[in-house]
């Protein structure tokens, strides 16, 4: 026998501030299958028709690293053998952050056609972007062991913890994206502002320099930028060198990221219904 039909009641009342984060996670959990479909779709269409397919997830960061290495080693006369590896890890981490942040910012406006035709949770679009970029990062990370081998850098067990880095990075990127995706429906300039911020962030987050390159008295301030800390964390996990990265910096970055994710989910859940009317 078929079960009772599902009763859905919709009112103008917005979810409460305290319950909003829970509401978001509940909606995403209920639509996890759809998130998976979107991630699979993005993975297929992003590399559709290319000769090396997913191989681009590895070639792209390697090529970028080569460009930055040439430019910055020429500019700074850098002779550090670990410099290439540091840049590569910075490119991988910052690439995931920037693509997720810019992608989630335009997620609602970019899917307006679908949003106006089908009643699905709008969070799904943001989480699908987060999921796809995480997967892309994990695929890209497969180049790290061969690079270490080629460079003759000893591998440590902590490299196995690299897949945990996206948890922090994506919490931050998606939390920010949840706020900017709502703003973007009201003010379309938001995506351009985010683009500028992401470019500025690239130079401020230590992609092509490390914490060890700046004076120790500035480390506390530098670590206030969670992305910079995550890039340092990646470097420490891969090389096993924990000399400059204090555990408190990591705790601080995770704390900021989680707080921003919670704040972002509150802003998103309480405002998405109104935002849809601006599409």
């Amino acid at each position: 026998m078929a079960g009772e039909p599902k009763v859905v009641t919709t009112t103008g009342e917005r979810p409460g501030i305290l319950t909003s984060p829970l509401t978001m996670f509940q909606r995403v959990y209920n639509h996890r299958r759809l998130v998976r479909h979107f991630v699979r779709r993005d993975l297929k269409i992003t590399y559709h028709g290319t000769m090396i397919g997913w191989g681009w997830t590895m070639v792209e960061p390697l090529a970028l690293t080569a460009v930055y290495w040439i430019v910055f080693s020429l500019l700074r006369g850098q002779d550090d053998s670990l410099f290439v590896l540091e840049i590569l890890l910075g490119v991988l981490t910052y690439g995931m952050f920037s693509r997720t942040f810019t992608g989630t910012t335009t997620a609602i406006v970019g899917n307006s056609g679908l949003i106006k035709q089908v009643a699905i949770s709008r969070e799904v679009f943001l989480w699908a972007i987060g999921g796809f970029q995480t997967l892309r990062f994990l695929l890209s990370s497969l180049i790290i062991p061969p690079v270490l081998l080629i460079m003759g850098v000893e591998m440590t067990w902590t490299i196995l913890l690299v897949p945990l880095v996206p948890l922090g990075v994506q919490s931050l990127a998606m939390g920010l994206g949840m706020v900017t995706s709502i703003l973007h429906t009201h003010v379309r300039d938001t995506s351009h502002v985010v683009s500028i911020l992401v470019t500025a962030g690239f130079f401020l987050s230590g992609v092509f320099f490390g914490m060890r390159h700046i004076p120790e008295e500035h480390h506390d301030m530098f670590a206030l930028n969670p992305v910079a800390t995550y890039i340092e964390l990646m470097r420490a996990l891969v090389t096993g060198n924990w000399e400059v990265l204090e555990p408190i910096y990591v705790i601080q970055a995770v704390g900021i990221s989680v707080a921003i994710l919670i704040l972002g989910s509150i802003v998103f859940v309480r405002n998405e219904a109104k935002a849809v009317k601006h599409l």
């Binding site: 009641t9 009112t11 779709r41 297929k44 056609g113 679908l114 035709q117 089908v118």
Partner: peptide, 30 residues
């Protein structure tokens, strides 16, 4: 359920499907 009312209540009983803009969401490369 695409638009939430500013005032009042909407109650539906059962799976609800809107047929509009047929084919929305198709991906050209798939």
């Amino acid at each position: 359920g695409i638009y939430r009312p500013d005032h009042g209540t909407v109650r539906t009983r059962g799976r609800c499907v809107l047929l509009a803009g047929i084919g929305t969401g198709f991906q050209s490369n798939l």
